[in-house]
Design a protein around this nucleic acid. Structure first.
Ligand SMILES: [Zn+2]
Ligand SMILES: [Zn+2]
Ligand SMILES: [Zn+2]
Ligand SMILES: [Zn+2]
Lengths: 146, 146
DNA sequence: TATAACCTTAGAGCCAACTCTAAGGTCAAT
DNA sequence: ATTGACCTTAGAGTTGGCTCTAAGGTTATA
């Protein structure tokens, strides 16, 4: 039986975070001492580790709630239920990746275009590009206007 | 001279957002009517468009504040001042990209490993992987444990 | 028995960038 | 003169995931 500080050590999640997860229905301490201290058993620990792994994978706490309700009753859920959640998350991640890659490309083009030197910025092509609107917005690819 | 709703139309930013930007020192209406209505001239419009372009490029409002103070006095700033901000932003973007790519890879591996079918999840390899800790965390690359 | 290091709770604060509300003033058209 | 569409302000609410505080109770050690 682990106290919350011990569970915290085992998992790398703060005691605050563990209580927060409990408040949001993700985890629970299956026992309490007479004074009300939380005590966690091995099954509790494994559940917390599941949450942590899912969190590291990028799932939101809401997603994890769903995954946990599958986990506690696998017989009532299908592999498709699991892949639906995973697929949805992958789509979100891919959308963000696309957005960030476009930013990356724009920033790289901006940096290439500027001398980066110590003289004054009256001629700076980054400032010019930002002033000019920078992108052809009709095109999905960020591209500096020449 | 544009009223706020007209500037909103011209820029695609809501009047709320324009007032929010003003409150945070990014933009300003150079004139007001007797009744206190904001009026924007061409120079105001160009400044707002600069803000919008920088926003689309991924810069935070704090970054944009710095870029704007360079913009109004280019002679007192160097190209390096501009590239410093841009480079910092690129590093942030690259860090997020790395994180998201790792998530993407993990999610793809999970999806490959699961049949996604209608039978029950007692054998689901996604659930197993999340239970098992999923990643070799010593390695930067996400990898399913075999 | 005192001190420190734990634990409890409800609830507030934080981050960024909005987004919206309330309560009222203004303006153009009917 | 009355709609209705605009405008103003200060300030509250939203999102997600923590993070921290206050005020108190418990436990281990000296
Ligand atoms: Zn230069
Ligand atoms: Zn430059
Ligand atoms: Zn299956
Ligand atoms: Zn499966």
């Amino acid at each position: 039986m682990l106290k919350i500080s011990e569970l915290s050590e085992q998992t790398g999640l703060s005691a605050h975070t563990l209580r927060y997860y409990e408040k949001h229905g993700l985890i629970n301490a299956s026992n309490r001492s007479e004074a009300g201290y939380r005590f966690y058993n091995d099954s509790d620990l494994r559940r917390v580790q599941f949450v942590k792994t899912a969190r590291n994978t990028g799932f939101s706490l809401a997603d994890i709630g769903q995954l946990l309700s599958i986990r506690v009753d696998k017989r009532s859920h299908s592999c498709q239920d699991v892949t639906d959640i995973t697929q949805k998350k992958l789509l979100e991640v891919n959308a963000k990746l696309t957005e960030l890659q476009s930013m990356q490309q724009t920033l790289e083009l901006l940096l290439e275009s500027c001398c980066g030197g110590p003289e004054n910025a009256t001629h700076c092509s980054i400032m010019e590009a930002l002033d000019a609107g920078l992108l052809r917005e009709d095109n999905k690819e960020a591209r500096l206007i020449k």
